[in-house]
Simulated scan of single mutants.
Amino acid sequence: MTIKVLRGNPTPEELAAALAVVRARAAAAAVQPSGAPGPRDSWADPSRLAAHRTPRPGPAAWSRTYWPS
Rank of each mutant, 00 (worst) to 15 (best):
I3L: 15
I3E: 04
K4S: 12
V5Y: 13
V5W: 08
L6D: 02
R7K: 15
P10Y: 06
P12R: 08
P12C: 06
E13D: 15
L15F: 04
A17N: 14
A17L: 13
A18F: 11
L19V: 09
L19K: 15
A20C: 05
A20I: 03
A24Q: 06
A24F: 02
A24T: 01
R25V: 12
R25E: 14
R25K: 07
A28D: 04
A28E: 13
A29V: 00
A29R: 10
A30L: 10
A30F: 04
V31D: 02
Q32T: 12
Q32V: 13
Q32G: 00
S34K: 08
S34Y: 00
G35N: 05
A36E: 01
P37I: 02
P37F: 06
P37Q: 02
P39K: 06
P39T: 03
D41Y: 09
S42I: 05
S42A: 08
W43C: 00
W43M: 02
A44C: 09
D45S: 11
D45K: 10
D45W: 09
P46K: 02
S47R: 10
A50P: 00
A51K: 09
H52V: 12
H52F: 11
R53N: 10
R53I: 07
R53Q: 14
P55A: 13
R56L: 14
G58L: 00
P59I: 07
W62D: 11
S63C: 03
T65S: 11
T65W: 10
P68L: 01
